[in-house]
Design a protein around this nucleic acid. Sequence first.
DNA 1: TTCATAATTAAGAATATATCCTATCTAAAA
DNA 2: TTTTAGATAGGATATATTCTTAATTATGAA
Lengths: 147, 147
Amino acid sequence: MKKDNKPAASPREVFKRIGLRATPQRLEIYEILNEIDGHPASEDIYERVRKRFPSISFDTVYRTLSQFEKHGLIKKVHHLADKTRYDTNMMHHHHFVCVRCKKIIDFTWEELDRVPMPEGVSQWGSVEDRYVELRGICRDCLKEGKE
Amino acid sequence: MKKDNKPAASPREVFKRIGLRATPQRLEIYEILNEIDGHPASEDIYERVRKRFPSISFDTVYRTLSQFEKHGLIKKVHHLADKTRYDTNMMHHHHFVCVRCKKIIDFTWEELDRVPMPEGVSQWGSVEDRYVELRGICRDCLKEGKE
DNA sequence: TTCATAATTAAGAATATATCCTATCTAAAA
DNA sequence: TTTTAGATAGGATATATTCTTAATTATGAA
Ligand SMILES: [Mn+2]
Ligand SMILES: [Mn+2]
Ligand SMILES: [Zn+2]
Ligand SMILES: [Zn+2]
């Protein structure tokens, strides 16, 4: 959990601030997230918590992670829609995705397409595609929110 | 199925070219994909095919869609990994994702961050995030492929 | 310290999306 | 026509995630 270099707070202080009880399971998951590098899946975390809490349930892991996410301690890396969507537009384009209703709107963005690859990209591997999503709230959902 | 403005080919010709039999179910799914706009989920397609083929199975829909995708008629819009990954790096950054092993590598890309929003974005809604993935094959997987 | 209570947990059931299996059927080539 | 590899329906299976419920516990107040 790399933060923007704010003063370090103890886990208990963090939990207090966001209104979560300092349960042993929660503290352990918090610690694991601080130690771990990369982008773990729920199962990776589950397996690690289980070393100290052999009877922890997946439910607790998921619940804790989603609470942490809600309070900005971690982020999910995932497609917004729960299910796969099929695109019939085979021309090069990008997407605006509504985080609320999952609507997807096509658009082109030539200025972005022209940006050269970042430094060092060749060290990571070969890039085959540049996938871009603008995420936000669509018109319709904005209207609904006001009512 | 908007294509790059190549000469229009009949469904049967398309299927012949890519070596798929022209079954009624397949022709119907093809037609639906041509009519439909937006980014349908498998269920949207299933429901529409069912009007004409009430006994079609989900398996056929999925199989057909993945064949179409394999031959470049459509594209999937989805997160590469099957499961959600959690990001503990809360600083602004982007991702290189290996399509083979699903490894995720963080990086920053200031030049891309500076590109102004595309024309007309405000018509679609309010943008809250710019999500970018470079997709390709990572170093390790490239090495493996050679052996 | 003790107590009350709302938050949290474990366990397993339930849900949702997607894939696999198999017997049967059929499009298409000879 | 006949042949057969490819395709289908239907049900089983897999996997990730969420829900339900009864029991437990952290925390603030007394
Ligand atoms: Mn699209
Ligand atoms: Mn990351
Ligand atoms: Zn919306
Ligand atoms: Zn890889």
